[in-house]
Every structure is written in C-alpha cells, then in structure tokens.
Amino acid sequence: MNAVQKTFWDGVKSEIPLLIGVVPFGMIYGALALDAGLSKLASQMMSTIVFAGSAQFITAQLVAEAAPAFVIILTIAVVNLRHMLYSASLAPYLKHLSIKWKVLLSYLLTDEAYAPSILHYEKEGLQKHSHWFLFGAGATLWVSWQISTALGIFLGTKIPDDLSLDFALPVTFIAMLVPTLKKAPAIASALCAGIIALLTYNLPFKLGLILAALVGITVGIVLEKQNPQRGQDGK
C-alpha cells in the first residue's frame, strides 16, 4: 500500500466508530423528512446537497411549519456558521491544495469528519498526503449518510399515515440540544431563546425564531463576559 492509500484508509478507519451514531440518525432523518412533507427525492437530495445533519433536521421542521425560504436559508446559514471555525482550524494543513481539492474537502467537511481529522493532524503534523485523511473520513461519512437516508425514506413509506411522527422532530431536537448544555451561560441563553420563541410565536414568517436566536446569543455573550471563569472551566 502506498502512502496515499494508507492515509486514505486511516481516515476511513477513524470514521468507522462514529458511524454507530450516524447511521441511525440518518435513518431517523429520512423517515422524519418524509413525515414533514418533503418528497422522497427532496429528502434524499437534501442529504446529498446540504449534507449536514442538524441543518437537515431543522429544515425539515421549518418546511413542516411552512416557514418562508428566506427564514430557512438565514437559519441554516447561522446554524452552519461553526463550519467556518472548523475550516479555519484545518487551514494550516490544507491551504497548499488546489482549488478543486479545497472545494471537494469543504463539501465533505462535517462535525463527524472534522473531529477525527483535526486530532490526526495535530498529532502527525502536516505531511505530503495529509488531505487524503480528511477525504477518507469525509467520503466514508458521505456514503453512510446517503445509504442511511435512503433506508430511512424506505422505512418512512412503511409507517402508517395515522401514526403521527410529528413529535419525533422536537424530541430529536431535545436529544441533540440537552447533552450539549453544560455551562450555565449556555443553559441560560437556550432558556431565553425558548421563552422568546414562545412570546413571539404569532409573528409572521417565523421571524420569532430569528429574534429568539438573537436574544439568546446576546444573553450568552453578556453572561460569558460577566463570568469568564465559569465560562471556561467547562462544567
């Protein structure tokens, strides 16, 4: 095996343990997107084009609530802002690549591909074929996400229409949100965002969602500034 192949397969192998969480999630996404009113093709194409779990779940929810396109686009743009931080931290290892490679790796960059790749790069440093590691991890995730989405869509068509799955999306959001709330400022800002969302529920175009996030961000920043120690120690 040459160096390119070895780096690629190391990336693939680093991704495999993460698939235990990803595959069921992809299946749930497929079934719920269908239940939210997206067509089979749209549900599958969202996994191919958007290729970002939480953004896809939120889009499905907003489509079900008939939110206008600009609110969906704005929401997803903000939700995916974290990818800028991922890209910036990977840049030292990838900046020498051609634009084609950068486009491909940007497309494949997700939370699950970023995590093993940055660990690998920080340990091994920049090497000639480093980018094949991220490619291996990202491609493995991509294939798994497409297949698990397709399985979920297939299972979704088997679920009887009278069995209401509309609660599954909010429960999924609870499952995604609560384990990430560790620090007091994060909990406070999430609570504020939730309460503002309740108070502004009747605003047109789901604008309450944007307002709630803005208030939540402000509260989070103010609390972090007031209490920097508690913000940094993690728990």
């Binding site: 939480s54 939700v79 959001f173 949100l177 994060a186 800002s189 999430a190 965002a193 309740l198 996030a213």
Partner: peptide, 18 residues
C-alpha cells in the same frame, strides 16, 4: 452555540403551544 439556540427556539413552541 448558534444551533443550540435555534433548537431551543423550535422546541419550546412545540412543547408549550397547543
């Protein structure tokens, strides 16, 4: 952080508004 806030803003109305 941002995606937490949107999740929270979606969850609350789903639970409290009937």
């Amino acid at each position: 952080m941002f995606h937490q806030l949107f999740l929270s803003a979606i969850i609350f109305p789903e639970l409290f508004i009937q």
